[in-house]
Design a binder for these strands. Structure first.
Length: 568
RNA sequence: GCGGCUGUAGUCUAGCGGUUAGGACUGAAGCUUCCCAAGCUUUAAGCCCGGGUUCAAAUCCCGGCAGCCGCACCA
């Protein structure tokens, strides 16, 4: 049974995971604050992701500005594709996508401006499909937050709607830093902004969100991946866009063409591993392949990792093969050489025909324009000039006729040592907030009004609670010194000496603290303390000097049972 | 953005035109040799915001904001 998200949000607010942002001014939909526990949990999730991608797979972590000038998003397609035109019915108030209503009237209605589209709808007498009422003029709504850089009119800019573009535009730097090899990858963890029309559902649809994105630049013709061999037998739950859901080995899925290539399959596996590592429930996870109609303008294959939570199946991660779309777009718009150079094993001798300017004839005829004409001539394809008695070249907008006496077409041998390639991009894109919220949903458990978050030690915001059984008789001093030693060992610990011991355990259980250490009267005589396991509520006694070591073992996954000595 | 429902301490809730707005849990201080939200004492904290109707508004009306559900949207 799915849980009531309201209940979870209530806990989050009560215990300091999440607060609606700007609450005292009435809040803004789609903006949340992370409280102390939420911020810690978020950091822990991000740190683990970093371990997998940066340390484990060798991606370069970079950090780019959130504000970007307009041309970046012109190139990426966001200025145009990220905005929609709406019309409203003046009678029933229903809203419609203007370009959808114009389907059939124009080959590509989405490419038209507001005025053109409005005129077309009006002249064709298009009415409200619901009630037949009149329609307003189209209004454009762009999901990016617009701003400007600098004073006065400034420079039009936008808050980034994804962190990806920062990595695409830095391809050359990343490629160079990576010693000019493919594949090479970059990652970025940071904020992105989307001015959603109607934010809903807690952290699921936010206006300011946290993303962890990886962009892997690969050879366009080679999407194999050496480490794929290590995981080829692994099974992940797949829901392909054709055929029934299946859980098959990755190798089989790639062979059958269900998953398009090895790299994609590998990073789907890594994504699945990450999800399990942080503690999401495998029974409530699946990879769903985008329908071909749903696929974004850039993607050639895309799989979403979805989790089943109180709101239903929810997309947490998208793993997409974006082809060459992004890099090509920035290459075309900026003119920068965003290519990788593939060196041939042996340099090749290539014989080619070239147009060679004859300066002796050019000079007297064209005077100071000769140099520019010569450059233009060299760029001409040989076929265009061969066996002609004249050619026309374009020099600074002027069409000039150049007689064949001014050039000759000759064969030239050239050594070609490689070729330039526009890399393809494999993009795993993670929504931090959604991951965090889904994780809380999956670890939430309640029995007779007693709430326990079964967070793994890896991500738990607080790793251990430290309590004196009584705040007297010197127990407090011993507990404080244990607390200090834990802090010194770099473990997030929480000291509490107020209220009954049961209440203190309950407080820690409710925020997912994996274990608690209690100093009691025996501690004074034999130097041992109890360590309590959150999920079983069982206890073992350990020497107080060993507490830090034991806690470290527990939070890195050791079973509670393994703490028991044989004689226990 | 449209339609429906909703808004009382940190949380859950009582209230139905005139109440010092009541309770429970939580929080804080303390008592109780106290290992699983025990008990007792003390204490803090609330009518989403703004207009209107009325002698009088948490309560009725309007607008805003926020939440939930449906539609649309989610590149």
């Amino acid at each position: 049974m799915r849980m009531d998200p309201q209940e979870l949000l209530s806990l989050c607010k009560r215990r300091g995971f999440l607060w609606p942002a700007y609450d005292i001014y009435g809040s803004v939909a789609g903006l949340y604050d992370y409280g102390p526990l939420g911020a810690a949990l978020k950091n822990n999730i991000e740190d683990h992701w970093r371990r997998l991608y940066v340390q484990g797979e060798g991606f370069q972590e970079i950090s780019c500005p959130i504000v970007a000038p307009e041309p970046v998003f012109k190139a990426s397609g966001h200025v145009d594709a990220f905005s929609d035109m709406y019309v409203e019915c003046t009678k029933c108030g229903e809203t419609f996508r203007a370009d959808h209503l114009a389907a059939g009237l124009h080959a590509n209605p989405a490419s038209l401006g507001e005025d053109e589209l409005g005129k077309m709808l009006r002249e064709s007498g298009v009415l409200c499909p619901e009630c037949g009422g009149g329609l307003t003029a189209p209004k454009r709504f762009n999901l990016m937050f617009k701003t400007s850089i600098g004073a006065g009119r400034g420079k039009t800019a936008y808050l980034r709607p994804e962190t990806a573009q920062g990595m695409f535009v830095n391809f050359s730097q990343v490629y160079r830093y990576g010693r000019e090899k493919l594949p090479v990858g970059a990652v970025q963890i940071g904020r992105a902004f989307r001015n959603e029309i109607s934010p809903r559902q807690g952290l699921i649809r936010l206006r300011e969100l946290n993303m962890m994105e990886a962009e892997l630049f690969v050879h366009p013709e080679d999407k194999s991946w050496p480490k794929f061999r290590d995981v080829r037998a692994e099974v992940v739950p797949l829901v392909p866009n054709k055929g029934p859901p299946s859980s098959v080995a990755l190798e089989e899925a790639v062979k059958a063409g269900v998953i398009r290539n090895e790299v994609l399959a590998y990073f789907m596996w890594l994504t699945y591993k990450f999800a399990l590592d942080i503690g999401l429930d495998p029974k409530r996870l699946r990879f769903r392949q985008h329908e071909s109609t749903e696929m974004a303008h850039y993607a050639s294959d895309c799989w979403d990792l979805e989790a089943e939570i109180g709101y239903g199946w929810t997309e947490l991660v998208g793993v997409a093969d974006r082809g060459c779309f992004d890099v090509k777009a920035h290459l075309d718009h900026s003119g920068a050489d965003l290519t990788s150079f593939e060196r041939y094993d042996e340099p090749r001798e290539v014989e080619m025909e070239v147009v060679k300017p004859n300066f002796g004839a050019l000079g007297p005829l064209f005077k100071d324009k000769s140099k520019l004409i010569a450059e233009a001539l060299s760029k001409l394809p040989a076929e265009a000039a061969k066996d002609q008695d004249k050619v026309t070249v374009d020099v600074e907008g002027e069409a000039l006729v150049v007689p064949s006496s001014c050039y000759e077409v000759s064969k030239r041998k050239e050594k070609v040592s490689g070729r330039k390639l526009v890399p393809h991009v494999i993009e795993p894109s993670y929504g931090v907030d959604r991951l965090l919220f889904s994780l809380l949903d999956h670890v939430y458990s309640k029995k007779d009004e007693y709430i326990v978050l079964r967070l793994k030690g890896l991500v738990a915001p607080i790793k251990v609670g430290v309590f004196p059984l009584m705040a007297r008789d010197g127990l407090g001093e011993i507990a404080t010194s244990i607390f200090d030693s834990l802090v010194k060992a770099g473990i997030a610990a929480y000291y509490d000496d107020s209220g009954s011991i049961g209440r203190r355990y309950a407080r820690m259980d409710e925020i997912g603290t994996p274990c608690c250490v209690t100093v009691d009267y025996d501690t004074k005589s034999d130097g041992t303390v109890t360590v309590r396991d959150r999920d079983s509520a069982e206890q073992v006694r350990v020497k107080k000097e060993e507490v830090a070591e034991v806690v470290k073992a527990l939070i890195s996954g050791a079973s509670f049972e393994s703490l028991r000595s044989p004689q226990d």
